[in-house]
Each structure stands twice: as C-alpha cells, then as structure tokens.
Nucleic acid binder design. Structure first.
Lengths: 338, 338
DNA sequence: CTGAAAGCGCTTACAG
DNA sequence: CTGAAAGCGCTTACAG
C-alpha cells in the first residue's frame, strides 16, 4: 500500500541502491539524479520503513526509558526527568520506548533481547537495582540516572547528594543556625534502596557535627496526614530548632500550607531550605531557597553519553559514575538565626 | 551475535518454519518436536528479533502515545493518563512509543508513515487539534482521549463534562446554595482549544439558571500568584457566595493552603466541589468532594478500542465518540448553605 | 506433522 | 557516478 524504495527507484528511473544512497548521503549522487529521486519521493510520499531499516542496519533509533510508578511515592517528581530525556533523545534522532511494566527484570530482558531498543535509560535507580542483572546480559549500552551499589559496566549520572547536604548545612551555619531539623524521604524509600536518602542525610549529619550544630533527621511521608504528622513530631522533638531542611518532594509541596497552619513564617520564624528542581518549584510555586536537583541537566548528560556509546562503543571509553555538582538558589526563605 | 531462528532450527534439527510455528502456535507440532525446539530456545537464549518480525508481519506491537507538555500547564495532571494507557497496552502485548515532539504534525507523520507504530493514542486533544490532519493520512487507526470539533473517522473517549457540571450544580442546589463561584481552567487553555473548559462552564451556567442560582465563572490560573489572585477576585466579586466549584488542577491543589490563609473552612464557611481524579486527590491529599474525572477508565477504554480496531478494522465498526458518565464522590466538603 | 522457498523493505559491500 | 545482488531475521502460503 505505502510506497517502498522500489517504487521510488522505478519512478525516478534509478536503482534502489541509488535511492538509498541519496537518502543517506553515503555516496555522491549527481544533482540531476538526486532531483529526480527527490521528485519521486515527494510525489509518492515515501518514508523508509523503520522495521526494514532496523533489520538491515541492526539499529532501531529507539531508546528504552524504564521507570517505575510507585503507589506510595510522589509521582509528579518523576515527570521532571522524562521530558529532558525525551527532548535530548529526539535532538539526536532517537525515539523513546516508555516501559512501565511492574515486572522490571522481564521488561528489560524482553525489550533488549528482541532488539527493540539501541540503548537503555534507567530511571529511579535503586541501590541494589534488580534491572542491572538483565542489563549486563544485554548487548545494548545502558545509562543509569541514579546511584547503584555496583554500577560496574554502566554509565551513571546522579546529583552529588553529599555535596547538596553540605551546601545546605554551610548556608545555614553561616547564618548562625545551631539547631536544625532535616526531613528526609519516607522510610520505605530507604527500604527500596533510594540511596539519596542516606547519602544526603549522612553528609548532613557529618557536616553539622563539624560545626557543632544540633541536627535531627526525621523521615517524612509522601501523603497526608503522614506529612503533617511527621513535621509535627519533628518540631515537637526539637522545639528550639531555627531552621528546617526538607529533602522530600511531597513534604516541600505541602509546606506552605503546613507552616501557615502553625502560624510560622519563613524566614522570620524559621529558615527553610529545600532540595528540589527549578521546574518542581515552579509547578508548586515554592517560595523556598533550595539546593537544585537539576533533572534536566542529568537527563541531558545521561542521554548524550548513552548516544555516544551507541555510536561508538570503543570511543566512549570506560564507564563513569558522574555526580554532578549541585548549586543553591536563594529565594529568601533563610535568614539569621533568631 | 545473538541467536536467530536459524540457530534454533539447526540445534533442534528442524526447519525454521517449524520453529516459527512452534512459537506462534499457528499449527500443530508434535510433542517431541516441540520439546526439542524449546530446549534449543532455552539453551541458546533465543528471542525473536522485533524488527524482522515487524517486517514480515507488518505489525510492530507498538502503540504511539502523543502528548504535549505545556510550559504553562499543570504537568502532574497529564501523568494520570500515561500509566493506565501503558498498563492496558501491555496487557494486550503492546509496547508504547512516547512522543513529545513540539512539532506535533511532524511527529505524527514521522512515526506513522515509517510504520513505527500500529496505532495512535492522542492525549490532551484540543478542539481543532492539528494532529488530526496528519492522522487522516495515516494508515494506522487512532483513538483520541479528549474532544475535537471534527473527530470524524476517529474513536474518541472523554468525560462528559456537561454532565459533570450538572452533577456539581445539582449537588449544591440540593443543599440550598444560591450563589456559587466557578473557577475554570486558565484562559490560555480556552485559546488552545481545551473544550472541557466551556463544555463544563456552559452546562454549569445553564443548569444554575434553571434553579435560579447565581453562578459566576472566573478563569483560574496554573501558577502562583495568579492562582491566589484569581480566587481573591472571584470572592471579591461574589461576597455572598456560599459554594465554590473548582475545575482547575493547579487551583484545587493550592486550595487547602488558600482557604487556610483566608481563615475559611469547608464545609462550614464554604462548600467546595472539585473536578479531579481519585489518583490526583490522593497525590495532593485533597479533602474535597469531587466529580471524578476517571483517567484510568478513559485510558483503558481508549486503548482497548484501539487494539480492537488494530486486530480487526472491519469488526470494530463505525468510529464512536464516547463520553463517559462521571460520578460524584462525597468527601464531606459540602454542607447546607449558610 | 514438517520442509523448502518466497517475500517483507531496507542497506551495503562488490563491480564497473 | 550508478547497478545488481546478497543479506538482515522473521512469517506464511505452498507442497508433501
């Protein structure tokens, strides 16, 4: 039904190989021939068949994006990574197969071993991510957005959460705060292997100790009333706290309302530092100074590296674990300790 | 490198066609042969090559999911549709190509005319959606989630927003409310062709008039401080209003905080009815009675219909525009008019 | 119950 | 500067 390269060749009075080369530019074609071919293509509305091309070249121009939607997590946070990954992929001529199967291992195996994708982007990587094992058997390269215990053989990109914590603590220490509350992601995120929880927390604890700062860490929640209750508990345990660090998407999104309920204003009554992206802050109109998580930058770097590796596995060199440097954006929610 | 059907055939001592038929079950294979083939498959770790299969069968088992991320819209709302579409597709053996190009027409043309997908799911459909034109030229079937002026030739699924409005008005009328504020989606959504804005609003206005209810509709915003300002303006314009209908995701997500700021409690000071999904309400812990938008149901119905049409274009019959019946979930945020 | 062969629509050495 | 032919890895009539 649809025109094939043979139809174009016939209409232009050339061979199929000539049409193919005209399309790919892989060899010189006379102007006259090229024009005849182009006219035939336009007239017939020809587009190369992706399956046939994939079979002939062993390349699909599709990347797999693997993500998990967890019932008990704050879904909007994941979305920030999807768009930059998709955009960067398209800039390099790749489409995106979005895989959300709950059978994580099966999904990776199925899509890689059938050669549906040229490369793999893993989102929401956990410390002992079960997807890494099937990925090692795969012949396609993979990139992780996140941090795994044994990322040997894979490129990994993540925020430097240790440095993020030090930035937050330094900022508050400079302002004279000596009693700080840290709200972390929920405990089940730790159980699942969300390493950013303890990487941030441990670094914060250590840095605070160095300043002689009293820091207490509490698990936050991702749903009400848990969000509110965990904050209540944290404030009750540290009545003299003058600053709050929130490393928890659902909690920071709910914080304006919570502080209002308690009649607290930042920075006058309480200094607040969040950990979230510019996009997230904008979506939820968050008025807080924050350590930026830069999902757009991570997504872009990850996809670029993956595509480099697809294009030239040898050239791309040894796999790297790259922790990108966070920065702090001051939105005026911190001030001198009371 | 990877095993092909020829390798399996050789190892099992049968022909390639026999392996193929054993895989598809399209003809009888003796138990003994089948076992030898299965053993060879297991040993070699064989998985059929998706590109080769697509070329031979003219079927990719991939659906295209086309969505637009608008800078000025509340992104989390879109996510609710993605998961049910993905889940339903997988239940029927289809994977999902997620297409987010800003060049909407080009993206549809590119992916359909190269036969990357067997069918198309259009999300975030506008009244004069530019994607419909390239879709008419495509040979694959398509389904719209949303409502277009001329959906001729396509299956469409959307909530019955007219009925949704009537449900909300009836509910409040029964409770004796006679002065109601309606916050609609932002004005730019109307400009873009988001028909749900006026379908809901017009039906609400008409229904209210029938009861002799004073209803004033205001455009809400999707970002602060616009969200707050539009609510302020609405309350200023209707100081005697006893009820609020919110048909705006960003506004309803911000409402708990806003009402708190103003010292208003629902249902005592103000009855509140939202228009949002169960999932959305859960993510944002919204304590409001709401007309459910059922994105999971819409996504599932849409994909099922699309797959039916792919499987048997003739059997599936004439394209339908199906508006699903909303229902109201009482969460106790409405009460008798003061 | 099974096999040999053609065909799906491309790309790319090989030849000239 | 261009063509004829092989090959990518499947599926499916056609034959027996």
């Amino acid at each position: 039904m649809a025109a094939t390269i043979g139809d174009v060749a016939r209409a232009a009075g050339v061979s199929r190989s000539t049409v193919s080369y005209a399309l790919s530019g892989k060899r010189m074609i006379s102007d006259e021939t090229r024009e005849r071919i182009q006219a035939a293509i336009d007239e017939l509305g020809f587009t190369p068949n992706a399956g046939a091309r994939a079979l002939a070249t062993a390349q699909t121009n599709v990347l797999g994006l693997y993500l998990q939607f967890q019932e008990d997590e704050f879904a909007p946070a994941m979305l920030q990574y999807v768009l930059p990954v998709s955009t960067t992929a398209r800039e390099h001529g790749f489409d995106l197969l979005m895989v959300t199967d709950t059978d994580l291992v099966g999904a990776v195996t199925r899509t890689t071993s059938s050669y549906m994708v040229d490369g793999v982007v893993l989102l929401d990587v956990t410390y002992d991510d079960v997807r890494l094992e099937p990925l090692r058997r795969a012949s396609q390269p993979a990139v992780l957005i996140g941090y795994a215990r044994d990322a040997e053989g894979f490129d990994s990109f993540d925020l430097d959460f240790g440095e993020a914590a030090r930035l937050a603590i330094d900022h508050l220490a400079d302002l004279g705060h000596r009693d700080i509350i840290l709200m972390t992601p929920p405990e089940h995120v730790v159980a699942r292997g969300g390493s950013y929880v303890w990487r941030f927390r441990d670094a914060a604890v250590e840095r605070a100790a160095r300043y002689g700062i009293h820091l207490t860490a509490h698990y936050g929640d991702s749903r009400q009333p848990g969000i509110r209750e965990s904050l209540d508990a944290a404030f009750a345990a540290s009545p003299a706290a003058t600053a709050l660090i929130v490393h928890n998407d659902a909690t920071i999104a709910a914080l304006p309302s919570y502080l209002n309920d308690r009649g607290l204003r930042s920075p006058d009554d309480l200094s607040v530092v969040g950990v979230f992206s510019r996009e997230f802050g904008q979506t939820f109109s968050l008025p807080y100074t924050a350590v930026e998580t830069s999902p757009d930058r991570l997504g872009q770097l990850a996809v670029q590296q993956l595509i480099r590796r697809i294009a030239d596995p040898a050239e791309a060199g040894v796999p790297v674990v790259r922790l990108i440097e966070p920065s702090l954006t001051d939105r005026g929610s911190t001030g001198p300790a009371a």
